[in-house]
Design a protein around this nucleic acid. Structure first.
Lengths: 266, 266
DNA sequence: TTGCTCCTCACGTCACGTGAGGTGGC
DNA sequence: TTGCTCCTCACGTCACGTGAGGTGGC
């Protein structure tokens, strides 16, 4: 009985607006264009909403944050959500959020390299500026619509929830290094350059932690590395752009600092 | 001489559009409303851009990704950037990106708790839906304009670049636990609930790593914890909403699993 | 009775998109 | 000569914002 109450409880536009942070006008607009018709009207003609409407609203807000038009959103909406469909929807949302975080990390790495370049050379070359614009554009809107986080993380989200964020962190650490290496290489730095050597040190430290650290981290690393062939296409070309430079820098780093490489690492 | 070349080299609208991913029409629009006037025209009346224009364009794209209107952006732009001002600008951008990442992590945590709730109870209560909408709204647009990352991370970015991402990671781990605890508490779960106990385990594992792990991590933890009074206001109330619940859950966890608490931890 | 919330037109706005018709460079 | 890029009007569009004038509930 109380669950029925909960499902049928009525909310006014004002209440929905206040608790979601949207405006009354926006909700009226969504009703007018039919993307979120109200469940009904009171005798006096006022709109009211029930819990299911809020579930739809959640979807609308989410897709809107990806830059999708209201017309396109209309077709994606789940009207009468079963528990299973709701679950799948939330997992999809998680996927997209994780890939957004990943692309923000890329932007952070780009800015860090740009800062280093600015400090050491006194100005930003054309490539760095254009690269910044591209990543910022990419991290803001558009094209997220049909994006799936390409199974690197997705598969493991399904398996073991606790492990997912470890894998995510590992993936992001590796990606950051790759992005910075690719940038430095594009900027024409040599592998012996201080910035490249600092990067080599971070890369080496990461390898040591990843292979010798505690079990969780090792597993996460192996999961990410093993699935490298299944990385998104953009990451494949990132890897190819960064790898030679990173290898060369690491070679110099190991020689200069007289580091003994364990047999287990080639 | 070659640096002069680099600074004076001319680019057509088409070239700029292609390399930045913007459209020609957008660049024409920015010229028309005066937010990015071209450096000049060719004899035949065609626009051309030089490197400094690209620096301005980078700023425009960045602010636009925060949801700021072109009119407001106009007043923020740095016209003739010195190396020092450019550096400060990039640091500001970094700050905002980090806080965006932080708010995306909040959204991820909210969805994870919602998934757990959905799986165990079969539907999403009003509070969870509304909470999702609020965080998604917050993580997408608006109000980032005057945001500073409140010195938790900012101060350390200035000091030692290599350390910044450790501190960021630590901060995000702690915040995730707090968000999830606050949600569970709001959903009316008891501290003995399986989900709460899973959270308590993660909290305890984190404490062990943070206080007994390697030096870098311990330092990062202490930096974040020491500055807790300087956390952003939103985080303060988050902490207050989560802390009692988390303590209670941890108490049960320690008792049930017969864990010996070292003297160094109260 | 007095705020307060809510209602429906209907026009305004912001950031471009989209042809329409024409010109210059390789 | 032929694409191709670029030019300037000028109207279209998308997602609401913003009054204007009026009604119902505590």
């Amino acid at each position: 009985v109380s669950e029925l109450d909960e499902d049928e409880r009525r909310f006014t536009v004002g209440e929905v607006a206040k608790s979601t942070g949207l405006t009354v006008r926006t909700l009226q607009h969504y009703d007018n264009i039919g993307i979120l018709p109200t469940s009904g009207r009171t005798e006096s003609g006022r709109r009211y909403y029930i819990r299911n409407d809020i579930l739809k609203l959640e979807q609308i807000v989410f897709y809107k944050s990806l830059g999708i038009s209201l017309n396109e959103i209309k077709e994606k909406l789940i009207d009468a959500p079963t528990s299973k469909r709701m679950e799948q929807m939330l997992i999809d949302h998680l996927d997209i959020l994780l890939s957004k975080i990943s692309s923000l990390h890329t932007a952070v790495s780009m800015i860090e390299v740009s800062l280093e370049e600015l400090r050491s050379s006194g100005n930003l070359p054309w490539e760095a500026c254009v690269g910044l614009i591209r990543t910022l554009e990419g991290s803001s809107l558009k094209d997220w619509a049909n994006y799936k986080f390409d199974h690197v993380i997705y598969d493991n989200l399904e398996l073991e929830n606790a492990n997912a964020s470890d894998i995510m962190d590992t993936y992001l650490s590796i990606r950051s290094l790759l992005v910075e290496a690719a940038m430095l290489s594009k900027l024409g730095r040599s592998a012996g350059d201080p910035a490249a050597q600092a990067l080599a040190k971070r890369w080496w430290d990461l390898i040591l932690v990843m292979t010798g650290g505690d079990e969780t981290v090792v597993n996460a690393f192996q999961t990410v590395d093993k699935n490298r062939e299944e990385w998104p296409e953009a990451d494949q070309s990132l890897y190819q752009a960064a790898e030679p430079f990173l290898e060369e820098a690491l070679g110099i780093y190991i020689t200069v600092n007289h580091i003994e490489v364990p047999d287990s690492l080639k």
